[in-house]
Amino acid sequence: MVNETELKSLIENILQDMVGKQEQQPEQVQEEVVAQATAEATTTASTTCTVASDACLPDITKVDVKTELLVDEPYDQEGYLQMKQKTPARIGVGRAGARFKTATSVRFRADHAAAQDAVFSYVDEDFVKKNGFTAVETMCANKDEYITRPDFGRQFSEEMKQEIKAACGTPQVQIVIGDGLSSAAVEANIEDILPAIKQGLQMHNINVDNVLFVKHCRVPAMDVIGEVTNSDVVCLLIGERPGLVTAESMSAYIAYKPTVDMPEARRTVISNIHSGGTTPVEAGAHIADLIKKMLDKKASGLDLK
């Protein structure tokens, strides 16, 4: 931006240029001067701004909303902060008239943006390659079809089924990763949860070989994989529909010999897996134990209890 001194000297220069325009009324002269100065200042400003661009605003998503109280002169600040500790809900946010403050509404939109991006973006192909997963996909042509046609998201083409069969064979335990409704959940948790599951299973001498990655995946896709591979247990790790608190929450759906159209009650579910909920490492160990139990009891879901 142009500072006051610079603006002053600009005006002086212009005034000098204008000497001789005596026939004009003083008021007109002044107007013209200001207009010209503003125009020149704008031109100058763009270069000055580039110089100043090293500065950077702090990341608003790093603010801990649980400790941020935005009510002006609260009656009981200490008490309010204690209330905020008891809930992740956005309370103590203050107001601008009967509307939200700017900071909290921008933060809300940031969290919503993260949730939407998690739904509508894809898991990076390099991520799938780097981890050595076998990539397959359901019948959905694109994301839009994925969100509107749950029936397509649980089916595979015949060729795809052959690929699955060829890649997996008939393992005792088949681990499947599905993008589901959050690609962010897959990328955030898989590299922690998978080693934990594998390690846990190895303690029982159970090996996990080929891990499948399913694009456009709905939960019942695991039933098709169960039928194709004839595995004893299929474990699907899938991104949950994101909330605003986190876009990285994942669920594990595990079933003993799943079949297409089986009752939902045959699935065992562990949800809320993310760094702020059940941590992926913790969940991985728990999942390994559950799989062992299913193999021993030859059952899953409600039948396991």
Binding site: I91, V93, A98, F100, G243
Partner: peptide, 22 residues
């Protein structure tokens, strides 16, 4: 109405408390 439109249990968004007076 939920706090700032964000339901932290059902993971969806509705109207905020502010919408009542507004």
């Amino acid at each position: 109405g939920v706090p700032h439109g964000d339901d932290v249990m059902l993971n969806y968004q509705s109207l905020g408390y502010h919408e009542a007076p507004a």
